[in-house]
Simulated assay, not measured.
Amino acid sequence: MSEGLRFVEEKVDDSVKLSLFGEVDIYTSQELKEKLYSIVDNNQTDLIIDCKELNYIDSTGLGIFVGALKKTKQYGKKIIITSLKDNIKKLFIITGLDKVFVIE
């Protein structure tokens, strides 16, 4: 069972930063999708996703990130993913998503 997901949204310069805490999986992905899409539509700025406290993400969560990226690109903006833990970074590399997202 999922440990749950929390997030904190804040403005950073001309971007919005969303810090993720916990796990993104089948149980929490819909909530994340709604949050990301809302941020993108309401702000139309670059989006920084801070994953320092993200412990787990599954394929559903990766799909949500990709959907949010497509939405962001409609506004000519980008998603920057920061502070990935090694196990999660490995997923991005294996799936090729490290070539699609800006990862810092």
Rank of each mutant, 00 (worst) to 15 (best):
K73D: 08
V40Y: 12
K78C: 05
T60S: 15
Y75K: 02
I81L: 14
A68F: 11
I80K: 05
S83R: 12
K99P: 01
V12R: 13
L97I: 04
L69E: 02
T82I: 15
I48G: 05
L84G: 04
L91D: 03
L91M: 13
I88Y: 10
V102Q: 07
T45C: 14
I88D: 13
V40M: 06
I39S: 08
I93F: 04
G96S: 08
S2M: 04
D50Q: 03
D13N: 15
E10V: 10
I103M: 03
K11G: 02
R6M: 05
K90Q: 15
K33W: 07
E104K: 15
G61V: 01
K89D: 08
T72N: 03
I26C: 09
K73W: 05
T45N: 11
V100Q: 10
Y75N: 03
K17I: 00
D46R: 10
S83K: 14
V16P: 05
S59K: 12
D58T: 07
I81Y: 12
Y27C: 07
I79S: 04
V8C: 05
K52P: 00
M1T: 13
K99G: 00
Y37Q: 14
D98H: 15
K78D: 15
I103C: 02
Y37L: 15
G61N: 05
Q44A: 15
T45E: 11
G67F: 06
D25L: 09
G22M: 02
K77C: 12
V8Q: 14
L20M: 03
S38C: 09
G61C: 05
E53M: 09
A68M: 10
L18M: 12
I26Y: 14
Y75V: 00
K89A: 15
L47H: 01
T60W: 04
E3H: 12
M1N: 03
F7D: 09
I49C: 03
E34F: 02
G76L: 08
L62Q: 05
V100Y: 10
G96L: 12
E3F: 08
G22W: 02
K89W: 07
V12S: 08
G76R: 07
Q30M: 08
S2I: 05
D50K: 01
V66H: 01
K52F: 12
S59H: 11
N55W: 00
T95G: 08
T95N: 08
L20G: 05
L5M: 07
I39D: 07
V100T: 14
L36I: 12
Y56C: 06
F65A: 07
Q74C: 10
K77I: 11
S38P: 00
K85I: 06
V8N: 15
